[in-house]
């Protein structure tokens, strides 16, 4: 049963990340995703300190705000200070993350997270934190509900804003012509990434969230040219690495989050080799290549 809950939580988190990751990969903004995942840490700790509990709502709000703030700061230093984007990202997130780590280590007694949790989460403890109603009915682990809710929010967001997100991603000029604000959708997307990062934080830690954001989406990007398919493949790879990660971790007796990232790397490596081979076949055999192109048209 424990295995089931852990894999379920991992999958829910990985699907949310995988879906959003597709947009980040296509917008060339994965490093901003990396920055957000680091920047939410001080928000999480402050929310802990202020609300005094591990309640999810203040945490989601506090940390979500910090995530969006970090993207705003990156933009601000880039636009107003003429600092190149890569440096702007690097300066901002390391600063916020450093503050977060200092807060964690200064309030170790009061805050229910430690440096290990920051780094690789505690998905192994998911089955221990149960949601039990006043009548004593066991509803299952709390994390499943949190990550499930976030996944629902993300799916709703993508479903409602599918067209807008697609156009602002692929053709910003067209979106301006159609009256769709690229800025608003940019910040909505960043907000969604922040919420997902916070929800994933407890399970897989700040740094490995990046693996969930990038690996499934990049794998899917290698395998298809169709955006809708990319979303599906990415979600599927998310589930796959959650399964693989769990059993790899059990086998080696190590961190589940680390094993999930490792599995993700292996899946990406396989996809990379597969896409290379396919390319070579297409190149060496031009007739089948043109056939395939004709068929696909």
């Amino acid at each position: 049963m424990n295995a089931f809950w852990i894999i379920l939580t991992g999958s829910l988190v990985a699907i949310s990340c995988g879906l959003l990751g597709c947009y980040l990969v296509l917008r060339k903004m994965t490093m901003i995703g990396d920055a957000i995942s680091h920047s939410v840490l001080p928000g999480i700790v402050l929310a802990f300190l202020i609300s005094g509990s591990r309640d999810s709502i203040p945490m989601l709000i506090g940390a979500g705000l910090l995530g969006v703030l970090s993207t705003f700061l990156i933009e601000f230093f880039h636009r107003k200070g003429k600092l190149q984007t890569d440096a702007s990202i690097g300066v901002t997130f390391t600063w916020l993350f450093a503050i977060g780590v200092i807060l964690v280590s200064s309030y170790t007694g009061q805050v229910d997270i430690d440096q290990d949790c920051v780094l690789y989460g505690e998905i192994a403890y998911v089955p221990l934190d149960l949601w039990i109603t006043e009548n004593g009915i066991n509803l299952g682990p709390r994390s499943v509900y949190i990550s499930g809710t976030v996944l629902l929010i993300i799916i709703t967001f993508i479903w409602l804003g599918y067209k807008e997100l697609l156009i602002t991603t692929f053709d910003p000029a067209l979106s301006v012509a159609l009256g769709i604000s690229t800025t608003i959708w940019h910040y909505l997307l960043m907000g969604a990434v922040s919420i997902t990062t916070v929800a994933s934080f407890e399970s897989v830690g700040a740094i490995l969230v990046v693996a969930l954001l990038v690996t499934p989406a990049s794998t899917a990007y290698l395998l298809t040219n169709n955006f809708r398919k990319m979303l599906y493949i990415s979600a599927f790879v998310g589930v796959l690495l959650s399964f693989g990660g769990y059993y790899l971790a059990v086998w080696l007796n190590g961190s589940i989050a680390g094993a999930m990232a490792t599995t993700g790397g292996i899946i990406f490596g396989l996809a990379f080799i597969y896409s290379k081979n396919k390319q070579r076949i297409l190149q060496t055999n031009p007739t089948t290549a043109s056939d395939q192109i004709n068929r696909s048209i």
Binding site: M31, I207, S255, G258
Partner: peptide, 19 residues
């Protein structure tokens, strides 16, 4: 950017697993 994020997170994940 994706390649950087991918490699840093996967390598770090492997590192955490080993650690």
């Amino acid at each position: 950017d994706s390649a950087i994020a991918l490699i840093l997170s996967v390598f770090f994940g492997i590192g955490i697993l080993l650690l």
